[in-house]
């Protein structure tokens, strides 16, 4: 009659914070009067290592910051930037808030999904790319815009999106990263 809670297979596999990640977090915590404040940037560091936020590192992080494990999970699921499950190596996030919507984001998204051959939020077969929608990226004057793993691309028309998807198919690093 009563069912077990949802199983989270992917999130529960063996994942450990690397030494470099741990060090980065330790340095980060020093900047704040309260260690708990470091959690948002710390989770970005964790996500940088794995591409998403697995479960074990959350427990480790809780210990490092001296907070409850539950508090880490509450934060991870509240903020949309944290991926609770793996995404493509390159996560293409296309804005569809009002200004981008007015300049064709719906068509751009459909075009991209067709080109990639996936559904929304689905990872391509080779694991390289996934396409998602995202709310206002604050680049409305250069609409439509998108992000490839947090790096902006502006004034993206379907042709440019084709180029982007083709490049990402074989990219090893994010080609749109500008320091």
């Amino acid at each position: 009659m009563i069912e077990k809670m949802d199983k989270l297979e992917i999130r529960s596999q063996e994942y450990k914070l690397s030494e470099a990640t741990r060090q980065e977090i330790v340095e980060l915590v020093k900047k704040y009067p309260s260690s708990r404040s470091a959690i948002l940037p710390a989770l970005h560091i964790v996500q940088a290592q794995f591409g998403f936020v697995p479960v074990e590192p959350m427990a480790e992080l809780a210990e490092m910051l001296g907070i409850l494990k539950g508090d880490v999970e509450q934060v991870v699921t509240f903020y949309r930037m944290y991926n609770q499950n793996p995404v493509g190596k390159f996560h293409v996030k296309i804005c569809d808030s009002i200004s981008c919507y007015l300049r064709g984001s719906d068509e751009l998204i459909q075009h991209g999904l067709q080109r990639l051959g996936t559904r929304l939020n689905e990872v391509s077969g080779d694991g390289q790319v996934s396409i998602s929608k995202i709310e206002c990226l604050a680049a409305c004057g250069a609409a439509p815009c998108l992000q490839v793993n947090d790096e902006y691309m502006y004034n993206v028309q379907p042709e440019q999106l084709d180029e982007i998807l083709d490049t990402l198919k074989t990219a090893k690093e994010n080609p749109y990263y500008i320091p």
Binding site: P41, H44, V75, E135
Partner: peptide
Amino acid sequence: CEVVIHSGAGAY
């Protein structure tokens, strides 16, 4: 004076 650059994580 210390200036700390803090990042949010996607919440309007």
